[in-house]
């Protein structure tokens, strides 16, 4: 399980934007999807999700709206905005650069042994 706050903190926005590109979600759905896809590797405290979402909304990356779920309950859904989509592309690029650099260092070290 990865509980490191810094790591998760840095990539949370990237993960949320990526999820919301596929489909509009409400908070609880997002938690479930992240847990399912990461095989429960990411287990952050659920209450910390909303501050991130609200910050993203005030930055104009997502937009919230009320909608009924399939079960007839009304929830606050989040939709990615155009600005959010641009941010996602930029964040993805940064992420790739970062993982490539880490891989190079790690592999380089392995060859050196």
């Amino acid at each position: 399980m990865i509980n490191d706050k810094g790591l998760l903190g840095g990539s949370t926005v990237l993960m949320l934007l990526a999820l919301l590109t596929e489909e509009d979600c409400y908070g609880y759905e997002i938690i479930r999807r992240i847990a399912d896809r990461s095989d429960d590797a990411f287990q952050f405290k659920e209450g910390t999700l909303y501050p991130v979402l609200h910050k993203m909304e005030s930055d104009g990356l997502v937009k919230s709206y009320r909608k009924e779920t399939e079960n007839g309950k009304t929830r606050t859904y989040y939709r990615i905005t155009d600005r959010g989509a641009k941010e996602l592309a930029a964040e993805r690029e940064k992420w790739n650069e970062f993982t490539n650099a880490v891989n190079k260092v790690v592999r380089g070290g392995a060859y050196a042994v």
Binding site: K45, G47, P51
Partner: peptide, 8 residues
């Protein structure tokens, strides 16, 4: 599961 309310 929500964690610390004050922090949130």
């Amino acid at each position: 599961n929500m964690g610390d309310p004050v922090e949130a």
